[in-house]
């Protein structure tokens, strides 16, 4: 039971970021910036809470910062047609550098912020954002496969020039999806800093953005399967806290490394043939 709730708690932030990443990639933009958005969200959540004494305000600040970050990334990757991997890496580095710098500037201490108030809990150590994460999965599924804009997002991701030929504004849909991915990843970050914990520490996301991306790939860009992958990664993380209690004959280091090993396996596509959106990373021709 403890392992189950720990799995859900570890999976929830991954699901936030993964649903954002999924929508973004489905629209045809490679999104390795998730890690950066998460970290910015984690920081902004704590900073907003610290200044306002309200974790709800903190969450809103995180959403705003995520949207802004998404907008910057979209501007680079779509309007300026920068390489999406390079632009994404820049966001990750920016997130790491900026949050460390501002931590020192605001609180005068390197490494971590002081403790702040947390979001309300709903029992079993779970905070209010946890059910929201799981609710996002059917919403994403519905949006993508049952709505008009969802069909268009898929078209932009599969073959942007074909979408354009029927009069769809590819850039507009991609902008929207990138900004949504920024928001969702930032909420995932805030989940960590003001939901699970009550402070910000340097690089506290520790690669969760990349793991979320791996979950998208693992889940073959399908919402439910991506949630399954996120639960698997969440389980691998949760195992770490329970390995001593369970007294398994496995070295602790291996358990800690497990999520990352799974990520590696996922992104090398070893487990099965994955089919990414065909037009990912491709710009629609102009005109």
């Amino acid at each position: 039971m403890a392992l189950l709730t720990a799995t859900l708690r570890s999976a929830a932030p991954l699901i936030f970021a993964a649903m954002g990443g999924l929508l973004c990639e489905r629209s045809g933009v490679t999104n390795i910036a998730l890690e950066g958005f998460m970290l910015m969200g984690a920081f902004a959540g704590v900073a907003g809470t610290w200044f306002s004494n309200s974790p709800i305000v903190g969450l809103l600040v995180a959403i705003t910062v995520g949207a802004a970050g998404g907008f910057v990334f979209a501007f680079w990757a779509i309007t300026l047609r920068a390489d999406q991997i390079v632009a994404g890496t820049a966001i990750v580095l920016l997130g790491l550098g900026l949050t460390s710098f501002l931590t020192e500037q605001i609180w005068g201490q390197a490494g971590s912020s002081p403790g702040v108030e947390r979001l309300p809990t709903i029992g079993l150590g779970m905070n209010v954002l946890l059910p929201v994460a799981f609710l996002l999965v059917p919403i994403t599924h519905w949006f993508l496969f049952k709505t008009k804009p969802g069909l268009r997002v898929q078209a932009c991701g599969e073959k942007p020039e074909a979408a354009q030929a029927v009069g769809i504004n590819v850039a507009k849909y991609r902008y929207a999806m990138v900004v949504i991915s920024g928001v969702l990843a930032a909420v995932g970050g805030a989940y960590l800093s003001i939901g699970d914990l009550s402070q910000f520490t340097t690089n506290m996301t520790a690669g969760r953005g990349f793991i979320a991306l791996a979950a998208v790939i693992f889940g073959n860009w399908m919402p439910w399967a991506t949630m399954g992958a996120a639960l698997l990664f969440g389980f691998a993380q949760a195992l770490r806290f329970h390995v001593q209690a369970l007294d398994l004959p496995i070295p602790q280091d291996l358990i800690i490394a497990l999520p990352y090993i799974l990520t590696l396996i996922a992104i090398t596509g070893l487990l099965r043939q994955s089919t990414p959106p065909a037009g990912i990373g491709r710009h629609a021709s102009e005109g």
Partner: peptide, 21 residues
């Protein structure tokens, strides 16, 4: 769009009114 069905391809960009498909 190769991964879409015929119907999806035909209506794309002219899906009709409303949000739901």
């Amino acid at each position: 769009i190769p991964r879409f069905t015929v119907a999806e391809n035909v209506i794309l960009g002219a899906e009709g009114p409303g949000l739901a498909l």
